Simulated assay, not measured.
Amino acid sequence: MKPHSHDLFDESTMSFGDHLEALRVHLWKALIGLAICVVGALFIGHKIVAVVRAPIDAALKEYNLDPRTEENSEEKQQKTVAELIASLNSRQEHTAESKALQEILLDYQHRIDNLEEKMSEPVTLAVQEAFTTIYLKVSFVAGLVFASPWVIYQIWQFVAAGLYPHERKYVYVYLPISIFLFLGGALFCFYAVFPFVLNFLLGFNKLLGVNPQIRLSEWISFAITLPLMFGLSFQLPLIMLFLERISIFTVKDYHEKRRMAVLIISVISMLMTPADPMSMVLMMMPLIMLYELGILMCKYFPSANASPFETA
Rank of each mutant, 00 (worst) to 15 (best):
L202F: 13
L202N: 11
L202K: 13
G203W: 06
F204P: 03
F204S: 07
N205I: 04
N205Y: 15
L207K: 11
L208A: 13
L208D: 03
G209T: 05
V210Q: 10
P212F: 02
I214M: 09
L216A: 05
L216N: 01
S217H: 11
S217C: 10
E218A: 10
E218H: 12
E218C: 08
W219R: 13
I220M: 11
I220D: 00
I220Q: 04
F222S: 04
F222K: 08
A223C: 14
A223F: 06
A223E: 04
I224P: 06
T225I: 15
L226Y: 04
P227T: 10
L228Y: 12
M229G: 12
M229I: 07
G231I: 01
G231E: 00
G231P: 12
G231W: 04
G231T: 12
L232K: 06
S233Y: 02
S233C: 11
S233L: 08
F234A: 13
Q235A: 02
Q235W: 00
Q235M: 04
P237H: 01
P237W: 02
L238E: 04
I239N: 01
I239A: 13
I239K: 09
I239D: 00
I239F: 12
M240D: 09
M240L: 15
M240T: 14
M240A: 15
L241Q: 03
L241P: 03
L241I: 05
F242C: 00
F242P: 00
L243V: 02
L243S: 09
L243F: 06
L243C: 06
E244M: 06
E244H: 06
R245V: 05
I246L: 05
I246S: 01
I248D: 04
I248P: 15
F249C: 11
F249K: 11
T250V: 06
T250Y: 04
V251Y: 06
V251L: 01
V251C: 00
